[in-house]
Structures are given as C-alpha cells and as structure tokens.
C-alpha cells in the first residue's frame, strides 16, 4: 500500500486549517458568551473597582456591548448604584457598560443613545457625555448628583421606564 508522506507544504496547510478551525470555534464560543452571559452585578462592581480609568456606556438592550451590563467605582458608588437602579426598570435600556480607557470609542458612532463617562476616580473631574440620535446632547464635568441623574434619565430612559 502506497503511503503518502506529508510534505512540508501539506503539513503547513493542515496546521493552518486546524488553526482556522480552532479560531472558528473560539469565536463561536466567545460570541455566545457575550450574548448569553449576564454577569452578576456584584462581579461587575468588583471588576470596575480594579480599574483606574473607566468608561461607562448606556445602550439599548438589543445592542449589548461585550455582554457587560453595569459597573461602578468608588468614590461615587452610591451614585452609580442610583443610576443603575433608575435605569434598571427601562424595558429597552441595557444598562451601564464598563470599559477600560484604552477601549474608548466615539459614542456618536454607536447605534444607540449612550452615556459615556471618563472616570479618573476623582469625582470632581469625571466627564460625562450623553449622545442621542448620534449627537452629543449633554456634556458635563463634575459629580454625578441627582440633577445630572435626572438629565441622563430624561435623555436615555424616560420613554421606556414604566
């Protein structure tokens, strides 16, 4: 019986196919994790607290970003919690998304109304940008007080909260 000895070229092709297959399954797995995974709130809080610079984004529920729903950092913990509570009743608002500063992207290009906060663990210097219909409609620097929470609520969630 004739036995085909794999040449170097064939060997590389096979390895390449295997690599593609692994990548394909890995991407399938990661996509399904993003869509299905509901990360517990407390875990997100912990994750948020580990980062020095955080961006928060609020988006609509059909546009979940990274599967993350909420996070918060000190020292504004109670305020982030209040924002989370205030918007958690919204039917089509998927809550706050937390990303490291390096993942920052233009909120005006996102396909939903967003809140982006550049957070440097100094509440007086937090920068808030809220976009609606691809335009920034609120820009604010300072502490997330009730007055600002109300503005965010009106822009992002007022129509959908029962």
């Amino acid at each position: 019986m004739h036995r085909v000895v794999p040449t170097k070229e064939r060997y590389e092709k096979r390895a390449y196919r295997r690599l593609l297959l692994i990548l394909y399954f890995y991407s399938l797995l990661s996509v399904s994790c993003d869509k299905g995974e509901k990360m517990p709130y407390e875990l997100l809080v912990k994750l948020g607290q580990k980062k020095d610079k955080i961006i928060f984004i609020i988006g609509k529920s059909d546009a979940v970003y990274n599967g993350w729903r909420s996070c918060e950092v000190d020292p504004n913990e109670e305020r982030w919690k209040a924002l989370y509570r205030m918007l958690s009743g919204a039917k089509d608002v998927e809550l706050i998304i937390c990303l490291p500063q390096s993942s920052k992207r233009s909120i005006e290009s996102l396909p939903y109304d967003t809140l982006e906060v550049s957070k440097i663990k100094e509440p007086d210097n937090d920068i808030f940008l809220v976009s609606k219909d691809n335009k920034i409609v609120l820009e604010f620097r300072g502490v997330l007080d009730m007055s600002l929470l109300r503005q965010i609520y009106e822009i992002v969630g007022v129509e959908s909260i029962s």
């Binding site: 109670e78 305020r79 919690k81 209040a82 509570r85 205030m86 958690s88 009743g89 009730m146 929470l149 109300r150 609520y153 909260i161």
Partner: peptide, 8 residues
C-alpha cells in the same frame, strides 16, 4: 427607582 423617589 423613579427619579422623584430615588434615594442614595
């Protein structure tokens, strides 16, 4: 969770 009744 309504803004008028939300406390921190």
């Amino acid at each position: 969770n309504q803004p008028d009744y939300l406390f921190m």
